Simulated scan of single mutants.
Amino acid sequence: MSHRNARLTVFGRRLLVERVCSGRPVAHVAAEMGISRATAHKWIRRWRAEGDAGLHDRSSRPRTTPHRTAAAVEARVCELRQTRKLGPARIGPILGLPASTVHRILTRHRLNRLVFIDRPTGTVICRYQRDRPGELIHVDVKKLGRIPDGGGHKVLGRQADRVTRSSVGFDYVHSAVDDHSRLAYSEIHPDEKVATCAGFLARAAAFFQAQGITRIERVLTDDAWAYRKGLAWKNVLAGLGATGKLTPAYRPQTNGKVERFNRTLLDEWAYIRPYTSNDERTAVLTDFLQTYNHHRCHTALDGHPPISRVNNPAGQYGSVNRTV
């Protein structure tokens, strides 16, 4: 993925190299591609020294940060946050630091929001992730009203839509999200019966395997009958060599990653614009998933898309683990 302000993508840089290698002057190629001669020479020089790898962006992070707050001071900031639940405006005067510096420290240590912290103990409980892709898969179903031909209430208004709304039924969006990478897979079905759930899990496992997650160890779901008692569901789990785990009753937070993905589904796919038919909405789901997995910046992954976590399972992003 290129830097968001870069004039050329990796493809454009390859095109630049091809045109220069064909014998054309660097200045002419730079002008037609809208970049400076210095920039063009830079990419040619990198390509000659490193080959195709040299055309990819390098991290702009400095090798050393001599003015970064000392580790002991950062530890004191975290201690005050976890023991006394103080915010940046109150921690700053205690330690003689600007509030903005304290906020950056808390963000770096995943303590910037109190909802991430267990109030009695100060332990981080909400920000957790498994250590490797496939270690835990979250599965859930989201129920959506179908859209009648011609559009629903977002197109026709609630009065006009009220006549047909009760007869169109519902779609059931089955979703699976990998805990470590947030890689997601979804399908739309007319129900959430055992056979439907089992077939979805088998296809989700095949999708994850195609993306590089070769083994699924555990699958976390709510306590719906299909997951608790369904023989077909248990057979698929056994075939994958995976263990099924149920969330505690009335605790959907345990399955929070797929629950949060459901909200993203609604905001960025189901309700992002008025659709004139159910088929139109269904057809867009594949494009949404492609964008989500390969291009969309994920805030929990420091702005990287989920596929980057599969390609780099060790991860350059911090994590706090919790047993699930």
Rank of each mutant, 00 (worst) to 15 (best):
residue 194 V to E: 14
residue 236 V to Y: 00
residue 93 P to D: 05
residue 177 V to I: 13
residue 166 S to F: 12
residue 68 R to G: 06
residue 200 F to Q: 01
residue 193 K to L: 11
residue 89 A to I: 12
residue 127 R to M: 15
residue 249 A to R: 14
residue 139 V to K: 00
residue 314 A to W: 13
residue 240 L to M: 05
residue 322 R to L: 14
residue 53 A to P: 06
residue 74 E to K: 08
residue 152 G to F: 03
residue 137 I to S: 00
residue 98 P to W: 06
residue 51 G to L: 05
residue 31 A to V: 10
residue 8 L to H: 07
residue 80 L to F: 09
residue 292 Y to G: 02
residue 264 T to V: 12
residue 75 A to Q: 13
residue 67 H to Y: 14
residue 208 F to R: 00
residue 247 T to Q: 02
residue 276 T to Q: 15
residue 56 H to Y: 15
residue 40 A to Q: 05
residue 121 T to R: 06
residue 107 T to L: 11
residue 212 G to Q: 04
residue 321 N to Q: 12
residue 158 R to V: 13
residue 8 L to Y: 01
residue 243 T to P: 01
residue 298 H to V: 03
residue 262 N to K: 03
residue 146 R to C: 13
residue 2 S to A: 12
residue 236 V to S: 00
residue 154 K to V: 11
residue 102 V to E: 03
residue 48 R to P: 05
residue 88 P to W: 03
residue 17 V to P: 00
residue 16 L to H: 02
residue 248 P to C: 06
residue 200 F to E: 00
residue 68 R to M: 10
residue 101 T to K: 02
residue 145 G to K: 12
residue 105 I to K: 01
residue 299 T to F: 13
residue 223 D to T: 14
residue 121 T to Q: 05
residue 42 K to P: 04
residue 274 P to M: 06
residue 60 S to A: 15
residue 285 L to E: 01
residue 74 E to C: 11
residue 178 D to E: 05
residue 289 L to E: 03
residue 27 A to T: 12
residue 213 I to V: 15
residue 207 F to K: 02
residue 287 D to W: 05
residue 73 V to E: 03
residue 74 E to I: 04
residue 19 R to V: 03
residue 117 I to E: 02
residue 149 D to A: 14
residue 201 L to F: 05
residue 120 P to N: 03
residue 187 E to M: 07
residue 93 P to I: 04
residue 309 R to C: 07
residue 144 L to C: 12
residue 292 Y to T: 02
